[in-house]
Amino acid sequence: MKLLKTVEEVRLYELTAQEGSLLMQLLRHFPFSGLKPATISQRRDEQTAERELLLNESLKQHREELKRAAAAIAARITPSRRSYSLELDPANREVLMQIMNDIRVGAWQALGEPETFEVDPSQLSSNEQAQWQLMHLADFFEVGLIESES
């Protein structure tokens, strides 16, 4: 994933054929995991319960928005001769970053929220290996986007 140019905050990225294909797959199949209930406070009382309900409802809606955005971004990945290009304005970059991080965190949760990433993938079950690869794939695109921001 290579940043080619920036024109008025719109960035044009070049993706290899493999990167373009993988990113499209990630976006078309998003989300890969269910939403884990979020905690709004360590305190447990009625008001916190109400706030937590609102938070989880809001996160559910946000997930739906990300899902729609993922499909829209996938449709913007344009094939060229041997590569793909993707043009993203700041809002779309932000959304894509959130989608990639959502995938990473979801895969990490599916792996049982390990404290360390020093794992021998050959020791994992086939499902765990798939989650492991998903996590690293999303990480690749997320880091690419963050690096192009700084």
């Binding site: 991080n101 990473r104 390990p114 404290e115 360390t116 990480d139 963050i146 690096e147 700084s150």
Partner: peptide, 10 residues
């Protein structure tokens, strides 16, 4: 352990 430092800063 999952969110990367540069992402959190961002």
């Amino acid at each position: 352990p999952v969110n990367i430092m540069s992402y959190v800063t961002h």
